[in-house]
Computed example of a mutant assay.
Amino acid sequence: MSSAEPAGTWQQRLRASGHRLTPQREMVLRAVEELGHATPDEVHAEVRRHSDSVNLSTVYRTLELLDDLGLIRHAHLTDRAPTYHSATGHEHAHLVCRACGRTTSIGRDEMEQALSGLAARHGFAPDYGHLTVFGTCADCRQGERGTLEP
């Protein structure tokens, strides 16, 4: 699917886990990769552009399977449905502004720097790709106060 992943890898992982390679699974995986970050409803809408035979429950089951196999990842960027993104490419965490909803992707190396002391102190290995930090972005903080404070 992705140019960063060797041909056949995702198909082999699916088959090795005892699952069949179906057009619906391929369409869901392709939709996640094309959309970047997407909710199940957004994935469903994208899949429906190519085939009206895929229902929402199939999309949910397929997203769960692909996530379990490590082909996609999910993060909770809102209090609603999880958001899915491709597991290929760079692993990243998310900063989400509660005021405007802006989501900023933060690379694993930057998150490791920020959390390495805390993780080491507690003997903990964070799942950076699943990490979401909620707060208020600089633009919204500046709008609230008129000036940006640290």
Rank of each mutant, 00 (worst) to 15 (best):
Gly70Arg: 12
Arg121Thr: 12
Phe134Asp: 02
Asp68Gly: 08
Asp67Ala: 14
Leu71Tyr: 10
His37Tyr: 02
Ala16Thr: 10
Ser86Pro: 02
Leu66Tyr: 00
Arg98Gly: 09
Arg121Gln: 14
Thr39His: 09
Arg48Val: 06
Ala99Gly: 12
Glu26Met: 08
Glu42Met: 10
Glu34Tyr: 04
Asp79Cys: 01
Ile106Val: 15
Pro6Met: 12
Glu5Ile: 13
His122Tyr: 11
Tyr128Gln: 07
Asp139Thr: 15
His37Lys: 00
Leu69Val: 03
Leu56Phe: 15
Arg80Met: 11
Pro40Glu: 10
His74Met: 07
Ala45Lys: 15
Gly146Val: 00
Gln142Phe: 09
His130Met: 02
Gln142Gly: 10
Gly129Tyr: 03
Pro126Met: 01
Thr62Met: 01
Thr147Tyr: 07
His130Arg: 14
Leu63Ser: 03
Asp127Lys: 11
Arg141Val: 06
Arg98His: 12
Pro126Ser: 03
Gly18Tyr: 06
Gln142Arg: 14
Glu5Met: 09
Arg13Asn: 07
Val96Trp: 10
Gln24Trp: 10
Leu29Cys: 02
His92Ile: 08
His92Leu: 06
Leu65Thr: 05
Leu115Thr: 12
Leu29Gln: 09
Arg13His: 09
Arg141Met: 10
Gln12Ser: 12
Cys100Lys: 10
Val32Thr: 04
Arg61Lys: 14
His50Thr: 02
Ala138His: 15
Cys140His: 12
Gln113Glu: 11
Gly107Leu: 01
Val96Pro: 07
Glu149Pro: 00
Arg145Met: 12
Leu63Pro: 02
Cys97Gln: 15
Thr58Val: 11
Ala45Met: 14
Ser2Lys: 08
Val59Glu: 05
Ser2Pro: 10
Leu29Asp: 02
Phe124Tyr: 14
Thr39Val: 10
His44Ala: 15
Pro82Met: 14
Pro23Leu: 03
Pro82His: 14
Glu110Pro: 01
Gly129Val: 02
Arg102Asn: 09
Thr78Asn: 07
Ala93Trp: 13
Thr58Met: 09
Ser51Lys: 00
Gly129Cys: 05
Asp41Thr: 15
Arg121Glu: 14
His74Thr: 00
Asp68Phe: 09
Phe134Pro: 00
Leu131Val: 08
Ala99Thr: 15
Arg48Glu: 07
Ala81Ile: 05
Val96Thr: 11
Gly143Leu: 13
Thr103Tyr: 01
Gly101Phe: 09
Asp68Thr: 11
Ala120Asn: 14
Arg73Phe: 07
Glu34Leu: 11
Asp41Gln: 15
Ser51Ile: 00
His19Tyr: 11
Ser86Trp: 07
His74Phe: 06
Ala114Ser: 02
Val59Ala: 06
Ile72Thr: 03
Arg61Phe: 10
